[in-house]
Design a protein around this nucleic acid. Structure first.
Lengths: 396, 396
DNA sequence: GTGATACGTTGTGTCAACCAACAAATACGT
DNA sequence: ACGTATTTGTTGGTTGACACAACGTATCAC
């Protein structure tokens, strides 16, 4: 590692702190990085000069001494975040600091092909960029409901969308002329929760998300999101829990995903296509209702038991300090009583169980766009100066 | 990160390459680190001056041009590695490069207490150091058959030895006057295989080891061994695979460890207290024998089926590129036929299964000492110069 | 031997971070 | 209101680590 790499690293560290906290004082940076005041001043000056951050005088006063200016993310530098779904393509612009500054959900009357997705996304990103003055879009992140090969952004299999072995990142990068990364949606939900949601501060974190198409998740190890060899890590829905269980879509038997499906909860509360909030509300109400033996309560208890088996294995395996539950698994958590909540990790090894806290996900409907944006921000933050020399989508 | 940290980092990188490869040429270092020839010369000179490495002229000639000297680990710098077992305390001195340069197995007629272990270990380390001239012992690593809290080396639970909530690293550090680290034995087996055994070159690696006291393991993520929050990660023996399965020692039902116990294999081949090699030999012979329906063959097939369920879940979860099997799980692998081997990950998601290779462990009876030594080397390699200023156990 | 090649060595240059002294802005006590 | 203590930003000079270029040296191929 040479001196230039050192510089890059320190600039990157400053930028990451600004990103994660949405603005910190120079004094904070000095303490956090252990560098000299003058060095921090220099680093911040470089970032200001290149337009990544602004210095403002609105830092909260915190005692005697000369006040330290707040280093805040510039709102002109954004990345685009994309989440193609069954009947909508969700596109947003996300600033440094993780704020969604513009968003458009393009409704569709059919399931989009990859080519359509690329075209619509490119068009929408250009429109959003044109509408927001002075904004520069510098990278794109895509959250795909399926398996995505991380290194080249190839969609291996997205059963929900009917995509199979389709290149996605490459054509979109071609269309927009900027770097595009893609990953699994549950993965990116994990990243979003880790950075800005229920996983802030966690070292080793397990994220499980339950959606209509199955159960996915992600793993954070020592503060770093884990991808696995090719980007497929985190498929917690396919832990085998019961050899006598129902057949899963993956072909195996007794997967968590087959034992605790969202559909069954939806059916138990008698709704049609509810979103996660509606499902959660209906479930909590149904479980709280006095008629104790309703279908909802039974199904919730059954799913919680299987979730407990999965969590037992996962907690023993990775010894996390936090577990974050999203989607219908968060709904299960919300309507579980104290005993049920405790039972989720009661059978894990006591030493590991003792250090875990379980939390429902915090970011709601913004989660996937924020996570996709994190993916895009990654490389920019890792090398802010080099990233600056690459061309951006022209501003308005 | 300041300039001094840069120096430390580069020194550390050189030392680590020398350690992992047991000696490399300066030209190799130049290529691997991307630093200038003169810088590499400088870094190596510092390490030579401090006695960490030697420069020798025995590098294999590899073409025209001036030959590059080989930078080899000095054999005077060692760490002590310790592995307390039921009836023996195994102590070794391990050099940079992972060579065991001295070893003594202290036999006992009873299960040692922690105090005895500390006393015997300290005594044995001193004796070994005194017998090997010019050797300096600079740190100690302990492989404990149980759960160990990594940050302070406290043994939380070692059922085999009857230890529970016993401080181990602290009293041993006190007795020997040098840093002591302790961790779980399967964990350290994983590290050993990763660095010098069947896991060399793996990015994300899963290690499962079957022993008389159960099934443990370890996980390597992006080349870094994963500890989990407190050091308990890797307890793969306690994945819940069958809610109708036998009760496990951990209190839960259907753990891998309860479904694929070593005892059952030992009983099937009719041996008494065989070591891993003897068990493997007997199993291979029994399975290869013509009487197809023997107890051994049946039990092997049964255990392989459960191992497959566990591996399916683990592969889907972490998307490894290598799986290493040790202990009786390696014996299972060795006597499995092609179809059985393929079946181990046949039910995993195809994308993940495609990139994984399964290997039996390679290091045999040296594994735990080498792994424990890796633990000790960690801090020394991370900061070679600073480590140099700390006092060493006096030489002969 | 002779040329080509690869590598180590040496002295000089560059760049990032540090340091010390000073200036600025705030809180607090009188 | 004023002075003092405290904290932080700013500035110019210093230190240290690595890069670079020119040169010396050891081997291989012919």
């Amino acid at each position: 590692m040479d001196a230039g790499a050192l510089r890059r690293r320190n600039l990157s560290a400053v930028l990451e702190l600004v990103h994660r906290h949405g603005g910190v004082t120079r004094a904070d940076l000095t303490r956090a990085l252990g560098l000299n005041r003058s060095t921090i001043g220099d680093l911040v000056a470089v970032l200001v000069e290149h337009g990544w951050v602004d210095e403002r005088d609105d830092a909260p006063r915190s005692g005697v001494g000369r006040p330290s200016p707040r280093v805040a993310p510039s709102d002109t530098r954004v990345v685009a975040a994309v989440n193609p779904e069954l009947d909508v393509i969700d596109v947003g612009l996300v600033s440094l600091g993780g704020q969604i500054v513009a968003r458009r959900r393009v409704a569709l009357d059919h399931v989009p092909s990859v080519a359509e997705t690329v075209a619509i996304t490119a068009q929408t990103v250009r429109e959003l960029a044109a509408e927001a003055p002075h904004v520069e879009v510098r990278a794109v992140g895509v959250a795909v409901p399926g398996l995505v090969r991380r290194r080249d952004g190839q969609v291996r299999l997205a059963p929900h969308l009917g995509w199979r072995e389709e290149p996605l990142a490459a054509p979109l990068a071609e269309a927009l002329g900027m770097p595009v990364s893609a990953s699994n949606d549950a993965h990116l939900g994990c990243r979003a929760e880790q950075t800005f949601g229920a996983g802030v501060g966690a070292g080793t974190m397990l994220y499980l998300n339950g959606g209509p198409s199955g159960i996915g998740g992600g793993l954070v190890v020592d503060g770093r999101p884990m991808d696995g060899t090719a980007g497929y890590a985190g498929e917690l829905g396919h832990l085998g829990l019961d050899p006598a269980g129902p057949l899963c879509a993956c072909g195996a038997r007794g997967c968590l995903e087959a034992l605790a499906p969202r559909d069954a909860l939806v059916a138990a509360v008698g709704l049609e296509h509810p979103d996660d909030d509606a499902l959660e509300e209906a479930l909590v109400a149904a479980v709280a209702a006095e008629d104790a033996d309703g279908a909802a309560r039974t199904e919730v208890a059954r799913q919680l038991r299987w979730l407990a088996v999965a969590l037992r294995g996962a907690v023993n395996f990775v010894n996390p300090d936090r577990i974050v539950l999203g989607g219908h698994l968060a709904a299960l958590w919300r309507c579980a009583d104290e005993a049920q909540r405790a039972s989720l990790i009661a059978d894990a090894l006591p030493a590991s169980a003792a250090e875990v806290t379980i939390e429902p996900a915090a970011l709601g409907a913004q989660r996937l766009l924020i996570g996709a944006a994190e993916l895009a921000w990654d490389e920019l933050i890792a090398d802010p100066i080099d990233a600056l020399t690459t061309p951006a989508l022209a501003e308005a």
